[in-house]
């Protein structure tokens, strides 16, 4: 198989299964329905983007899948096992705000490696410092770094514990557009190298089509999965390829934004 060809994900086993997940917040008169019977299967090694307008509940969905929030109905299973809380095998990457400001870059990246012997931990940290291109900044504190560098620290911290699944919640939302482009290709490079299952939430349709194997399009509140779009294009994706543009436009239409006006 040539590099960059679409992987035969159809044959990979289901890693993560979301079944009938609903979420309602209590309110004065009647509960506010945020998520309505979400079903979603993600296969091992797959890169799935959840895209939708702000307020559609996509972040809530990711937090339920991550085990931080309990849904009001439904269940999430990973490798057939019900999710009851956060787990070190599945790391949630926040926007760069999740970097701990009192730890250096190296200490942040080693944050989850407390049960390794020191020598092994140092080696692991050095490896991921290199992987995300932060060599020379090991002893810097987060406030001395740019937003993009902090985001790299978060990604490295997540990868360092060698999880099976990465959850990313608008990870590049606070970055400038050039850094965002770089970070996307970095993430794809890391994904190809580390073979993780990735669930990536974004409101940016272009971003989802550039990254994902499949894009789950969410409706406005109460959030439902309106459509799942296959992005059957090899990486790196040519952003002027008519097939790319067709997929992008179909998602824009699906979301109901008249972007050509």
């Amino acid at each position: 198989m040539s590099a960059g060809a679409p992987k035969p994900l159809g044959r990979a086993k289901v890693k993560l299964a979301v079944h009938g997940v609903s979420m309602a917040y209590p309110a004065h008169d009647k509960p506010i329905q945020v998520l309505d019977k979400i079903d979603l299967d993600v296969r091992e090694g797959e890169f799935v983007c959840i895209v939708g307008p702000s307020g559609c509940g996509k972040s809530t969905l990711l937090n339920i899948i991550g085990g931080f929030v309990q849904g009001t109905a439904g269940e999430v299973r990973i490798d057939g096992e019900a999710v009851t809380g956060p787990d070190r095998r599945r790391i949630f990457v926040f926007q760069e705000r999740g970097v701990l400001p009192w730890l250096t870059v190296a200490e942040n990246i080693g944050f989850g490696l407390y049960d390794l012997p020191p020598a092994e931990r140092r080696a692991r940290v050095a490896n991921y410092v290199n992987l995300v291109g932060l060599r020379g900044f090991e002893d810097a504190y987060p406030q001395e770094l740019s937003g993009g560098m902090k985001q790299r620290v978060e990604v490295a911290r997540a990868l360092a514990v060698d999880p099976d699944v990465l959850y990313l919640d608008e990870p590049f939302g606070a970055l400038d557009s050039i850094t965002r482009l770089t970070m996307r290709s970095e993430l794809l490079r890391i994904w190809a190298a580390e073979k993780k299952t990735i669930l990536f939430v974004t409101h940016d349709i272009e971003e989802s089509v550039q990254l994902a194997d499949r894009v789950a399009v969410m409706s406005a509140r109460p959030g439902r999965i309106q459509k799942i779009v296959d992005v059957d294009l090899p990486h790196p994706r040519d952003l002027s390829d008519p097939r790319y543009l067709a997929i992008r436009d179909s998602i824009f239409e699906e979301i109901g934004i008249a972007h050509r006006v």
Binding site: F68, P86, R90, I91, F92, F94, G98
Partner: peptide, 17 residues
């Protein structure tokens, strides 16, 4: 920030640690 606590829980921290 709740995000720090969630990150810590995610990496398996609880209690005194």
């Amino acid at each position: 920030p709740v995000i720090y606590l969630r990150a810590a829980q995610n990496f398996g921290f609880s209690g005194l640690a």
